[in-house]
Simulated scan of single mutants.
Amino acid sequence: MLREPVVVEIAERHGRTAAQVVLRWHMELGLTAVPKSADSVRLGQNLDIFGFELSADEVASLSALDRGDAAGADSDAFGH
Protein backbone atom coordinates (compact mmCIF):
# COMPACT_ATOMS: atom_id res chain seq x y z
CA MET A 1 0.00 0.00 0.00
CA LEU A 2 2.90 2.36 0.69
CA ARG A 3 3.73 2.46 -3.03
CA GLU A 4 0.19 3.10 -4.25
CA PRO A 5 0.19 6.30 -6.33
CA VAL A 6 -2.72 7.74 -4.31
CA VAL A 7 -0.82 7.24 -1.05
CA VAL A 8 2.40 8.68 -2.46
CA GLU A 9 0.57 11.73 -3.85
CA ILE A 10 -1.17 12.45 -0.54
CA ALA A 11 2.12 12.02 1.33
CA GLU A 12 3.87 14.47 -0.98
CA ARG A 13 1.01 16.96 -0.62
CA HIS A 14 1.36 16.90 3.17
CA GLY A 15 5.14 16.63 3.29
CA ARG A 16 4.87 13.28 5.07
CA THR A 17 5.90 9.71 4.43
CA ALA A 18 3.49 7.20 2.92
CA ALA A 19 3.54 5.29 6.21
CA GLN A 20 2.50 8.42 8.12
CA VAL A 21 -0.41 8.94 5.74
CA VAL A 22 -1.59 5.35 6.17
CA LEU A 23 -1.30 5.58 9.97
CA ARG A 24 -3.20 8.89 9.96
CA TRP A 25 -5.87 7.33 7.74
CA HIS A 26 -6.33 4.51 10.25
CA MET A 27 -6.61 7.05 13.06
CA GLU A 28 -9.17 9.16 11.21
CA LEU A 29 -11.29 6.04 10.62
CA GLY A 30 -11.15 5.28 14.36
CA LEU A 31 -9.09 2.15 13.78
CA THR A 32 -6.11 0.96 15.76
CA ALA A 33 -2.89 0.43 13.87
CA VAL A 34 0.11 -1.37 15.32
CA PRO A 35 3.13 -0.08 13.42
CA LYS A 36 6.37 -1.97 13.78
CA SER A 37 9.92 -0.83 13.21
CA ALA A 38 13.33 -1.34 14.74
CA ASP A 39 14.55 1.90 13.12
CA SER A 40 14.50 4.83 15.57
CA VAL A 41 13.81 7.36 12.79
CA ARG A 42 10.79 5.38 11.61
CA LEU A 43 9.56 4.97 15.18
CA GLY A 44 9.61 8.76 15.52
CA GLN A 45 7.80 9.17 12.20
CA ASN A 46 5.16 6.68 13.30
CA LEU A 47 4.43 8.89 16.32
CA ASP A 48 4.46 12.11 14.30
CA ILE A 49 1.01 11.76 12.73
CA PHE A 50 -0.84 14.36 14.77
CA GLY A 51 0.43 17.49 13.00
CA PHE A 52 -1.75 17.07 9.92
CA GLU A 53 -5.22 15.92 8.92
CA LEU A 54 -6.52 14.22 5.84
CA SER A 55 -9.39 15.78 3.93
CA ALA A 56 -12.62 13.85 3.49
CA ASP A 57 -11.68 13.33 -0.17
CA GLU A 58 -8.26 11.97 0.81
CA VAL A 59 -9.81 9.57 3.33
CA ALA A 60 -12.26 8.40 0.66
CA SER A 61 -9.44 7.92 -1.88
CA LEU A 62 -7.47 5.82 0.58
CA SER A 63 -10.52 3.82 1.60
CA ALA A 64 -11.23 3.07 -2.07
CA LEU A 65 -7.99 1.08 -2.13
CA ASP A 66 -9.60 -1.57 0.10
CA ARG A 67 -9.17 -5.02 -1.39
CA GLY A 68 -11.33 -6.74 1.17
CA ASP A 69 -10.41 -9.95 2.91
CA ALA A 70 -8.02 -10.97 0.13
CA ALA A 71 -5.48 -8.38 1.29
CA GLY A 72 -5.05 -9.55 4.85
CA ALA A 73 -5.75 -12.18 7.44
CA ASP A 74 -8.05 -11.84 10.43
CA SER A 75 -5.72 -12.09 13.41
CA ASP A 76 -8.61 -13.38 15.54
CA ALA A 77 -8.86 -16.38 13.25
CA PHE A 78 -5.21 -16.91 12.34
CA GLY A 79 -3.26 -15.57 15.31
CA HIS A 80 -0.57 -12.94 15.25
Rank of each mutant, 00 (worst) to 15 (best):
M1Y: 13
E4T: 09
P5C: 15
V7E: 05
V7P: 03
V7Y: 01
E9W: 06
E9I: 06
I10Y: 01
A11T: 09
E12T: 12
R13K: 15
H14E: 09
G15T: 04
T17S: 08
A18W: 08
Q20P: 02
V21A: 00
V21T: 02
V22E: 08
V22Q: 09
L23T: 03
L23K: 01
L23P: 06
L23F: 03
L23I: 02
R24T: 08
W25H: 15
W25K: 00
H26E: 05
M27H: 07
M27Q: 12
M27L: 12
E28Q: 15
E28F: 00
E28C: 00
L29W: 10
G30S: 01
G30D: 06
L31Q: 03
L31C: 03
L31G: 03
T32P: 02
A33R: 02
V34T: 15
V34R: 09
P35D: 05
P35V: 02
K36L: 09
K36I: 07
S40T: 14
V41R: 12
V41C: 02
V41E: 09
L43A: 09
L43K: 05
G44M: 08
G44K: 11
G44E: 15
Q45V: 11
N46I: 10
N46Q: 11
N46S: 12
L47P: 02
D48G: 10
G51Y: 02
F52V: 07
F52A: 00
E53Y: 08
E53T: 14
L54R: 11
S55T: 08
V59N: 01
A60V: 04
L62S: 04
S63E: 10
A64N: 12
A64C: 03
L65T: 04
D66M: 08
R67F: 04
R67P: 01
D69T: 09
A70T: 12
A71W: 06
G72A: 14
G72E: 08
G72M: 02
G72Y: 13
A73E: 10
A73C: 06
S75I: 15
A77Q: 15
G79E: 10
H80D: 15
